[in-house]
Structure formats: structure tokens, C-alpha cells
Amino acid sequence: MGFFVLGRGQLRRVIIIFSIVFVFLLFTSQHAIYAMHITEGILPPRWVFTWFAVSMPFVGIGIYHIKRKKKIVPSYLPLVGMLGAAVFVFSCFPIPVIALNGMTTSHPCGTGMSAVLLGPFVSVVVAAIALLIQALFLAHGGLTTLGGNIFSMGILGSFSGYFAFKIAQRCRLSLFWCGFLAGMISDLFTYLGTSIELGLLVINKGGSFFKATAEIFAVFMMTSQGILCIVEGVVVGLALLFIYKRKPSILLHLGVIKNDTKPIRA
């Protein structure tokens, strides 16, 4: 039985055209490559529920943290909202992809920055809201894939970035390098999470999960995101250093640094 209404030759042509369009979109878009969020309709029902079930407890704990802090410090909600908005805007920066000689731009995740400033659980809530806004008003990501995207960007991104920052601080690295590691590792883990989620789609259908995950991750890294991880790390490091020089009270207030942190020039 034929696989399509179209003939075999016609279908081959359709696929070739689709590949050209895809490569065109991937490499020559003048706006941005938004590749880190899984789009609407990609995940089958069981994975939709699985990722929601995994993500919701983290969001719940984040809400609990905000509520508890709001009772003690009433200004906490405007602070989280405003920093969340700033991180959202930061995640919209069109960073030129150096590997493609600036032909296209990509954008940072921002979760490393928000995890360092707000803590990992609150950062998960901020990421969940940012993803909801993006899914509804930018058609970027999706509603049924929200759980999966919260897992990769919110949970993996925030926790990896936060722990990278804390471990770097424990190792007495300078503030720039702590920020650099937080930004870079949160970005890497976000893409790893997305690759795992997409790789899992081939399970039970005769495909190799590890091979698919490795290939997707390799595609992300080789096209634009590998360099972007490093660039995001540098930007987060420089941003923290800038805040430290201009308004160290902000970092002290948020508990990012203690008085003994030694920054160095970039």
C-alpha cells in the first residue's frame, strides 16, 4: 500500500523541498532561531502527562517559597515579578551566532541568571510563566508541551545553573567565573533536556534513544547553540560583575554574594 496519495517520486520532491525550507529557516532567519522549546503537538499524550507530573511539584514548591517569603517581606512579589520581566527581556536578546558569521541570531535561556538571582525553585516558577507567555503570545513552545519545556528550561536549567554557581563559589572562583559557569551550564542542560525529551519519542518504535538524543544534542550544539552556551555564560558573568561594581547591595540583598567574594576584571 502506498504511503501517500502522492506518488513515490512526487513525495521525494516534497521532502527535498521541505529540507531546503528547513535548512533555510535554520540558517538564514534574520530574527532568531528559537530551538529550545518543544512546540505544540510534538509530544504524544503519555509524555505530555509524564512531563506535567514531573514539573508540577517543582512549580508547587516554588509557589510555596514565594508565598512564604511574601508574608514576611511584602515587597517580594514585585521584586520577583520585575526580575522575572528583566530575565524575560534578557532572554529575548538577539545574540549573533558567531559560528555562522552572524548570518543569524539566537537567544539566551536566562534561567541561569534567574536561578542565581532568585534561587532555583522561584526560578522554575518564573520560567513556567515565561514559557506560558511565549506559548500564548509568541507561538513559541506550546500549551501541551508546557510540562516538557518547564522540565528542560525551568527545572534542569535552573538547578544546574544554581548548583554550578554555588559549586564555583565554594571553589572560591571569582564572580565572573561563577556567573559564566551558571549561564553556560544552565544553557547546556536546557538543550540536553530538550534532546532527551525528543529522543524519548523514538522509544518503543524500534529506534535507539541514546543515538537519537546524541544526534539531536549534536545538531543543537553544532548549529548555533554550542557557541551560544559560551556567549550566555560570558554575558551572565559580565552582568553580575557589572551589578557588583555599580550596586553590590542588590547582590547582597538577594543573597547572591557574601562580603568576601572577590571579583576580577573580564
Binding site: A86, I95, L117, V234, F242, I243, R246
Partner: peptide, 11 residues
């Protein structure tokens, strides 16, 4: 970008 991101957080 680093300066801009830092300034954004301060603002």
C-alpha cells in the same frame, strides 16, 4: 550585552 543585562537587572 553583559553591561546591558546588568543594567537591566539594576533598573
Amino acid at each position: 550585552f553583559g553591561t546591558l543585562a546588568g543594567m537591566l537587572i539594576i533598573r
